[in-house]
Design a protein around this nucleic acid. Structure first.
Lengths: 259, 259
DNA sequence: AAGTGGTCTAGACCACGTT
DNA sequence: ACGTGGTCTAGACCACTTT
């Protein structure tokens, strides 16, 4: 990124001819990466305003239009939120409107009443090979393991098994989770641990409910469930969460838009 | 859209103050709608080039930058494809790279070999209440009903039940489908019937395989399957296909990216 | 009134593909 | 050499929010 330095005047074009030689990328992509890096370093926290387009333009020595294009992409990825007249803000999982950004279950009919979350377990374990690979850590390193049940409209509907790198989530305990009842997990991760989930990849299968899961959802063994395998990433595209969810889909369904 | 008429000179701004009064929308959104309308009218067919940005700018009496923004959005929605040096093309389901744009099943391990499609049924039926509502037609109107099985790597994996408005798909018969073996259905719909699927909405559940479906997939009854309920839309956002898919997910999974 | 993002325009040059 | 999309800049005005 060291090629963002010289200033341009008049209509002199500043095409991004990198010094390194290896990879080329347009200026606005470089700006985007710089903004992402600043977000990753915690320079601006979720919910806060970032500097105006002109301030960023001055800081990075480019025109406002170039900053705009970088911010446009980050806004399209829900990482930033523009608010006309007010500024551009860092997205947060605590805002009511994007609270369930990553929960794709919708009701077959009618409303979705307030969701309830019950934590059944929160303990430290050691990473097995699969978790280590997915989370880009070493086998045997510390993990936080959380099991919880989500209840929609009084009906237990989701069992989540969540695995987090212990190094990033020091001090995450049952009592901390209990102390933040009603706060979405991803919101708590943001405020308490400075870890923002920005993107996730899911793999979905149909499975038969095990005895264990069936009991938690008050259903019969072998009831068909969605098994949703999720890996979540931060600003810097590092994987920081592994989550296996079992979704009961008789009253709710997983919705998706293909484009 | 009648407010796209007067020409602007110099730095005189042409903000989109509509005549109708009801709804306002930025110029580039109006251009986008005009392009969509042209696509819907079949002015440019899938695979063809559309006019250059400057030509479109002249046609709609706006600057090239405004056309660019409209085309940008359409390209982001995979409706148009930009090719530097060549032009902007209408997307098609026949291109190898986007052939399986709407099929989200990926292999758990390794490759996905050529998919085989076997049509089991293709007949005219009358729309029931549900289909009529979803497809925005009247109960009792003619539908084309197709049942087919998709086979991946020699393993029957998907059963699709497809419902199409008869009025749009006159002449769609088993023999026509057989005559186009190897061509994806959506590709055939484009070339033979001028119907382009541009967007789709899916609702996913886990279900137990019925006797009937189990037999088609060579599995045991009650095996858990993904049930994927899809409604597909054209350029003008009219629903033109209803599809219920049953996916066997022991070797394949449904993948999804959350942003 | 001042500051922010939102839109629109115009012109320059670059990279790619075709002729 | 030419035409296409891709990038970058600069300046104008609009709409919204806060002071």
């Amino acid at each position: 990124m060291s090629d963002i330095s010289a200033s341009a005047t008049g209509s002199e074009t500043k095409q991004a001819n990198l010094a390194g030689g290896a990879s080329f990328s347009p200026l606005y992509q470089q700006i985007k990466q710089l903004v992402l890096r600043a977000l990753d370093m915690g320079e601006w926290k979720p919910g806060e305003v970032i500097p105006s387009e002109f301030e960023l333009a001055a800081r990075f020595q480019v025109s406002q239009g170039t900053v705009r294009k970088a911010v446009d992409e980050l806004a399209a990825e829900n990482i930033l939120i523009r608010r006309q007249g007010k500024g551009t803000f860092v997205s947060t999982h605590l805002e009511p409107n994007v609270r369930f950004r990553f929960l794709r279950l919708a009701a077959s009919e009618g409303r979705t009443s307030p969701t309830q979350s019950h934590v059944l377990s929160c303990q430290r374990i050691r990473a097995n090979a699969h978790a280590a690979q997915q989370l880009d850590i070493r086998v045997g390193e510390s993990l936080v393991y959380i099991r919880r049940v989500l209840t929609f409209d009084e009906v237990p509907t989701v069992v989540d098994d969540i695995y987090l790198p212990g190094a990033l989530f020091k001090g995450l305990t049952s009592s901390l989770l209990e102390a933040h009842q009603g706060v979405p997990l991803y919101g708590l991760f943001e405020t308490e641990f400075g870890v923002s989930m920005v993107r996730a990849q899911e793999q979905i299968r149909a499975v038969a409910a095990s005895e264990e899961i069936a009991e938690l959802l008050s259903i019969k063994k072998n009831t068909p469930l969605l098994c949703v395998d999720r890996t979540s990433y931060t600003y810097a595209d590092r994987p920081v969460e592994l989550r296996i969810g079992f979704y009961l889909t008789d009253k709710y369904y997983y919705r998706n838009t293909l484009i």
